[in-house]
């Protein structure tokens, strides 16, 4: 199957932009020297790009690139894998919370074109949504709590 390299290349450029933002932001928030984190960031971005390529190669699977990225890192970091020590040591320099700020900054901006649609909804939708959010969260938490107790894990 022919890959759309033009699109992948543009995605890679954006990934590099995101990587630079994370390096600068986590330097402010978590005092990680930018230079120290560069090798880890290169690995993280390489896996992210790999995930995009796999996603593009498997259009029928509908398995998102985010999941491919997680799965790849999961496999590389399992305790019995020879890669785990060096992989975890390097990617440790990329702080978990540090990767979240740019996502949410862009997410906030990206919903900017939904404000008008949102204004058309009534306050009832807001109230119902709050109960929907709470319902799924506590529904799952209660079931999980019970099952984990039965299993003796907690």
């Amino acid at each position: 199957m022919a890959l759309d390299w033009e699109k992948l290349l543009n995605q890679l450029k954006v990934l590099i932009i995101v990587g630079i933002i994370v390096l600068i932001a986590q330097n402010i928030g978590y005092d990680v020297p930018i230079i120290d984190a560069i090798p880890g960031m290169i690995i993280v971005l390489a896996i992210a790009f790999f995930a995009l390529v796999v996603r593009a190669l498997t259009p029928n699977l509908k398995f998102p690139a985010f999941a491919w990225a997680s799965l790849t890192a999961l496999i590389l970091s399992m305790p019995f894998m020879p890669t785990s020590e060096v992989f975890l040591r390097l990617t440790d320099q990329v702080i978990f919370l540090g990767t979240t700020a740019p996502i949410l900054a862009f997410a906030g901006i990206s919903v900017g074109n939904k404000i008008e649609a949102l204004k058309k909804l009534s306050w009832r939708v807001f109230v119902v949504a709050i109960f929907v959010f709470s319902g799924t969260f506590f529904g799952s938490a209660i079931v999980a709590h019970i099952v984990l107790s039965i299993q003796g894990i907690i």
Binding site: W68, T72, A73
Partner: peptide, 23 residues
């Protein structure tokens, strides 16, 4: 443009989540 940016910015986080589940 921010929409596609979100999708791509999520990927480093996806990698970090993998490194948390693996061990």
């Amino acid at each position: 443009l921010a929409g596609p940016f979100v999708m791509l910015a999520l990927l480093p986080l996806g990698v970090k989540y993998g490194t948390l589940v693996g061990p």
